[in-house]
Structure formats: structure tokens, C-alpha cells
């Protein structure tokens, strides 16, 4: 029954409701998943991540307007808030992750989901939100001394800001583990981090889940 909930028809119905801005029906789908004991990670990957990537592609192909894209994002964010009580119930294991969107990056849904996945696995996930100024991020790293810093890039033209902050972190904290990821990497940019061993590219939430399960 759990796998049936992610049949293609369920996803397509969810996407259709998302694209017409029907928050109620999207919420009903999520609630239905919870009622059938679908785990949060699967909801994140099979509904939220997949639909957000598809919404981004539809905008790039000029098949939906920027207003619809923003509405879909707004609905998804409200569904993340709906799931928050389940996210923060895990027992904590003493590890920390700071997750941030780079400067000028205002698409924060992906970063927020990553922080939630860390929390689900018992980490303290500090999500700094959209458009994180470089000095604020460095200050937070200094204060929290995280095990991982995760940097989210949704729009490709912010790659420059990502490269800048990665270099700033590397020069100030040479041993800091850095994860980079986000929808923008569909267009490339991963090779910019070759030769930087402390930087790991996380292709999607699945890759992060694998890392976290490995302990």
C-alpha cells in the first residue's frame, strides 16, 4: 500500500493540484500519505523534490509563468511547515549541520528540505534561509562548529556566489566538510568543485539519505 501511494497517478494528481494552486488538495495528498504510514523522506523525495524540479523545468520551458512557479513553491513550503512536528521529533545524536542558500539565492525550498532530512536523522539542522550573506554564514560556522555545511543553489546564475563562499569557507576553515547541491546543478557546475576534496556534491535528497544512513 505504501508503494502504491507513489504510483505515477498519485504524483501526477498532486502535480496537477500544485500547478492550479489547490493547497487543500495537495495537503490532502500529504495527509493521506501520513495516514498510511509513508515515511517523511519518501514524501520529500517522491512528492516535493520531484514536483519542485518539474515546476522549475516547466518554467524554463516557458510552459508555466513565474507567478505559478512561485505559487507552487509557496504551497510546498507550507506543506513543509505542516510536517514540521514530525521532523523535529527524532532523538538527537550530537551532530550539527548548517544549511544555507548562497547570497542572492531566494529559492530556499530545497535547502529547507535538506535541513529537515538532517533533523530526521537526529542531527541539529540550522537552516539559515535564503540569501545568506557570506559573513553571517562564516560567523555561524565559527559559533556552531558544524560537522557539515550544506550550500544550496537553485538558480544557475548564482554559481559565482557559491564558488565565492566555498573558497571563503575553505580558507577560513580548511577542514570543514562542505556539501553542495540544488536544482541548478542540472545545468552543470559540479566540475567547478573538482580538486576540492572537502566539497561533496549531493545530487539529490537520496544521496544525502545514503550519507546519513551510513553514519
Amino acid at each position: 500500500m505504501m508503494t502504491n501511494l507513489f504510483e505515477e497517478s498519485v504524483y501526477q494528481e498532486y502535480l496537477k493540484n500544485l500547478l492550479v494552486g489547490d493547497k487543500g488538495k495537495c495537503l490532502a495528498t500529504v495527509q493521506n500519505c501520513l495516514n498510511h504510514d509513508v515515511n517523511i523522506h519518501d514524501i520529500y523525495v517522491h512528492l516535493f523534490q520531484r514536483s519542485m524540479y518539474e515546476v522549475g523545468e516547466l518554467w524554463e520551458k516557458n510552459l508555466i509563468s513565474v507567478a505559478l512557479e512561485h505559487l507552487a513553491t509557496s504551497i510546498t513550503e507550507s506543506l513543509l511547515s505542516f510536517l514540521a512536528p514530525q521532523i523535529f521529533a527524532a532523538e538527537h545524536i550530537g551532530k550539527k549541520a548548517i544549511i544555507a542558500c548562497v547570497a542572492n539565492e531566494y529559492h530556499q525550498t530545497g535547502g529547507r528540505m535538506v535541513a529537515d532530512i538532517f533533523e530526521l536523522h537526529g542531527w541539529d539542522g540550522y537552516f539559515l534561509g535564503a540569501n545568506t550573506p557570506h559573513h553571517d554564514l562564516l560567523k555561524m560556522i565559527d559559533e556552531k562548529k558544524p560537522d557539515v555545511v550544506g550550500l544550496s543553489l537553485a538558480i544557475y546564475f548564482n554559481l559565482g556566489n557559491l564558488l565565492t563562499i566555498v573558497e571563503m569557507i575553505r580558507s577560513n576553515y580548511p577542514n570543514q566538510a562542505i556539501f553542495v547541491g540544488g536544482q541548478a546543478f542540472r545545468w552543470g557546475g559540479v566540475d567547478a568543485f573538482h580538486g576540492k576534496p572537502q566539497v561533496t556534491y549531493m545530487a539529490a535528497l537520496g544521496a544525502l539519505e545514503t550519507f546519513l544512513k551510513a553514519g
Binding site: E60, K61, F157, L159, G160, W187, G188, D191, A192
Partner: peptide, 26 residues
């Protein structure tokens, strides 16, 4: 925005322009 791209290496310049080119073409 295009005028900012020269700061990146050639492969990234190409990727950024490919992305914009597709966006504009459709």
C-alpha cells in the same frame, strides 16, 4: 548579467550561456 560571466572558467561560461540560450529560444 552576461558581462559578469568572464570571471568563471570556460566550461562554466558555456554552461551558463547554454542555459540562457535555451530559456530565450523557447
Amino acid at each position: 548579467w552576461l558581462a559578469t560571466l568572464y570571471q568563471y572558467d570556460q566550461r562554466q561560461v558555456r554552461q551558463q550561456i547554454e542555459w540562457l540560450g535555451r530559456l530565450l529560444a523557447v
